[in-house]
């Protein structure tokens, strides 16, 4: 998992909760670098799971909810850190369709070894986009939060229908996104 997800996550915890909680969840987790992350590094996704689990304990909020909130946060941050990906796009469907074939391609240029999830998209009609999230890691809530934040970013009223088809082999979640 890319380091930026970790640094942004810890920033969020500090911002939304407190720097003490950051220290607490880092201390509680068994982390390879003792919690010193850099955006350009790569770390095991199990560290993220540990941090989220401990955050849930500290805050009494369910893990899925926390992860979805983080999805919202991360999307907002991306719009600030990587404005070029949003420059020529003016609606959520178009944007979501660029993720797989544009954004991920750019990421691969910088990090050829990055293991990215795939987002298969298909316009079912003018108002409905099907997006299938396939990953080896259980971060469908992160994806859900980001998709929702995307609608907010483009000031659209979108609704999500989630269908989890995951197996032991990996995650496979179908999002049906409807614009109203």
């Amino acid at each position: 998992m890319k380091g930026i997800v970790f640094t942004e996550f810890l920033d969020m915890v500090e911002e939304k909760f407190s720097d003490d909680i950051v220290d607490t969840i880092i201390d509680a987790s068994d982390l390879s670098t003792d919690g010193a992350y850099t955006a350009v590094g790569t770390y095991s996704h199990t560290e993220m799971l540990q941090l989220v689990t401990h955050l849930a304990k500290e805050t009494d909020i369910e893990v899925p909810a926390l992860v979805e909130v983080f999805g919202h946060y991360l999307f907002q941050r991306f719009t600030k850190i990587y404005p070029m990906f949003f420059a020529d796009v003016d609606n959520s469907f178009d944007f979501l369709q660029t993720v797989e074939n544009h954004i991920h391609v750019e990421v691969k240029k910088l990090y050829p070894d990055a293991e990215l999830p795939t987002f298969e998209t298909k316009m079912l009609n003018d108002n409905t986009l099907e997006l299938i999230y396939i990953s080896k890691r259980p971060f469908q809530n992160l994806a859900e939060g980001m998709i929702k934040e995307c609608g907010i970013y483009y000031k659209e009223n979108i609704e999500l229908e989630v269908e989890d088809n995951s197996t032991d082999e990996g995650m496979n979640v179908r999002f049906l996104i409807t614009k109203h």
Binding site: I4, T7, T38, A39, V40, I81, K109, L110
Partner: peptide
């Protein structure tokens, strides 16, 4: 953060 951004830019240039 600035160093990370710089590094990404340089990586992209190298690429």
């Amino acid at each position: 953060k600035e160093a990370e951004t710089l590094l990404e830019q340089k990586s992209l240039q190298l690429y």
